[in-house]
């Protein structure tokens, strides 16, 4: 237990001192995570809305598929992206393996089904309420989807949050395609895994505390936004 206490002490010293190595890792983590979630939103939000509003053959199967993909094992996605990006792979010429871009791609693949699936549920509910109105106004499908996405914007924060949580906590995929290279592709989760195995518990713990803290902060901020929107009947 003494080790544990000492580790905590060292962890706080690192955080308080804004350790340069620590800041670099945090910065990259944020960059990779937010980029991945942004890409996943750009794809997942319209996809989810189309699945909710659209009426086309195969829609039901697609809904089930996207829902099932929410549980994609990160290591499998990591492996698949690795195979695509490796020198012998179809996208090998891009030389993206072991770069932050590869990590962003892998996480975007993991997060997109989560955002698409949650979006579909949110939009489905709102569509039930707006459908007659929008049809009576002569809105076309594209206009309808745009209206629904915009009016569900605060509810969709929850979908984005779920995606953010997944990306922030994820370690398997970024480890495989990023390689955990110091100063290049080392992010919080891979660093924690590495430092723990090396026995550098202080750094691992410091990173862990920051990771949890950031997660709480982001969640609290977005939830606060949603609450105030609900008060104004915007959500």
């Amino acid at each position: 237990m003494q080790d544990f206490g000492a580790a905590f002490g060292e962890a706080f010293a690192l955080i308080a001192g804004l350790d340069a190595g620590l800041m670099e890792i945090i910065g990259l983590s944020m960059r990779v995570t937010f980029s991945a979630v942004l890409i996943a939103c750009v794809i997942g939000l319209p996809l989810g809305a189309v699945l909710a509003v659209g009426r086309f053959p195969g829609r039901h199967i697609l809904v089930v598929l996207v829902s099932a993909l929410m549980g994609l094992p990160p290591v499998v996605v990591g492996l698949a992206v690795y195979l695509m990006l490796s020198a012998a792979g179809p996208l090998g010429v891009l030389q993206l393996l072991y770069t932050p871009t590869a990590m962003i791609i892998a996480q975007a693949i993991l997060v997109t089904p989560i955002i698409a699936s949650l979006t579909r549920q949110v939009i489905d509910d709102l569509h039930g309420e707006y459908d007659e109105l929008l049809r009576s106004m002569g809105a076309n499908r594209v206009g309808m989807i745009a209206t629904l996405l915009w009016d569900a914007r605060y509810s969709l924060l929850t979908a984005a949050l779920a995606g953010l949580g997944r990306a922030l906590a994820e370690v398997g995929a970024v480890m495989i395609v990023g390689g955990n290279i110091n100063h290049v592709t080392r992010v919080m989760t891979t660093a924690i895994a590495l430092e723990t195995s090396k026995g550098a518990l202080a750094l691992a713990l410091g990173l862990g505390i920051i990771l949890v803290g950031l997660s709480i902060l982001v969640n609290a901020g977005l939830m606060g936004l949603r609450k105030s929107a609900e008060r104004l009947a915007y959500a």
């Binding site: 309420e129 707006y130 007659e132 109105l133 049809r135 009576s136 106004m137 002569g138 209206t147 915009w150 009016d151 569900a152 605060y154 009947a233 915007y234 959500a235």
Partner: peptide, 18 residues
């Protein structure tokens, strides 16, 4: 349906969240 020249008002108004 000439949707642009027909308008419908519901008993319970459906207003957008705006």
């Amino acid at each position: 349906t000439p949707s642009q020249s027909v308008a419908l008002v519901f008993q319970k108004p459906v207003l957008l969240r705006r």
